[in-house]
Amino acid sequence: MPAQLPKQFTWQKMVNEMDWRFINDGFNSASTNMAIDEAIVQNHLENQIPTVRFYGWKPSAISIGYFQSLEEEVALEKCDEFGVDYVRRITGGGAVFHDLELTYSFVCSEKSGIVSKNIQESYEKIGNSLIKGFDSLGLKAQFVPLNDIVVNGKKISGNAQTRRNKCVLQHGTILLDVDVEKMFSMLKVPDEKLKGKIIEDVKQRVTSVEHEMDWENNFGEITVAGKIDEVVIAMKKGFEDNFGVNLAQGELSKDEKNMAEKIEKERFSSKEWNFKR
C-alpha cells in the first residue's frame, strides 16, 4: 500500500502500478447519476486510485450547466409531456439531452499528476481516452477546443469538468444516436423564430456513433444492446490505453453510497438547487 512504498516513488508511478476502479453502472435517474458523480469526487482521497464510471439515463433527461438558468434553457412543460427528467449539474457547460448515449465520468486527485493542472490540457488528456475508444470502433475522432470531440468534423462528445476536494471530476457524453428534433422541442433558443434554422444547423454539426458506424460490416448482425456493449468495451479500452492502466471492475463504497443518497435528496432532487439560477 502507499504508506509502505519508498519515499522517492512519485504519485504517478504509484497510481500507474495499480488497477484503476471501473464502475459500469447501467441506467439511473438524472438526480442519482449526478449524486453518484459528486459522491465519488467528494470521497476521493489524495492517494486513492482514479475511478472511471460509465452510465446511462433512465428516464431520459436534460442536464444543464452549473451557471445556466433552468427556466431560460428548458421547456419544462415539454419535458413533463415526454417524461424527460431535468437536473442542474455541478459542472459548467451547456444543456444536454441525455437520451441515446453513454456517459462517462472520471475522477482523480489533482496531486496525482495524472492530468494537468491546466484546464485545457486536462480536457484534452482525458478526451484522448475517448478518441482511442472511437478508434477501436473504427472512427477517426479529434479533440476540438474548448471541450468537444468530433468525428468527420461533427460533434460526437461534449465534456464538462469541475475541480473540488483537490480532485478533478470530468464527465461527458458519447452520443450513440441523436434525435435533434426531440431535443429542441425541449430546449429553448434565444429567438423562437430562428428555431428551425438552429435545428438544421445543429443537425449539420452533430453526429452519433450510430450515424458514423458501419455496424454490419464490422460486427455483422447486432442488436441495440450489443451495440452499446461494443461502445462500452471500446471506451473502457480507450481509457486503459490512454493512461496505461487496467480498469478493474469495482463498486461504490458504503460511504460513497450513503453520501450519494444524501446529496441526491438534499441537492439534485431539490427545486432550490435545480431552479437556483
Binding site: 450547466g65 451557471f67 445556466q68 459548467g92 457547460g93 444543456a95 484546464i119 464538462a160 475541480r163 473540488r164
Partner: peptide, 8 residues
C-alpha cells in the same frame, strides 16, 4: 448565466 466554466 451561460454555458461557461469557472473554478471554483
Amino acid at each position: 448565466t451561460g454555458d461557461f466554466f469557472a473554478h471554483p
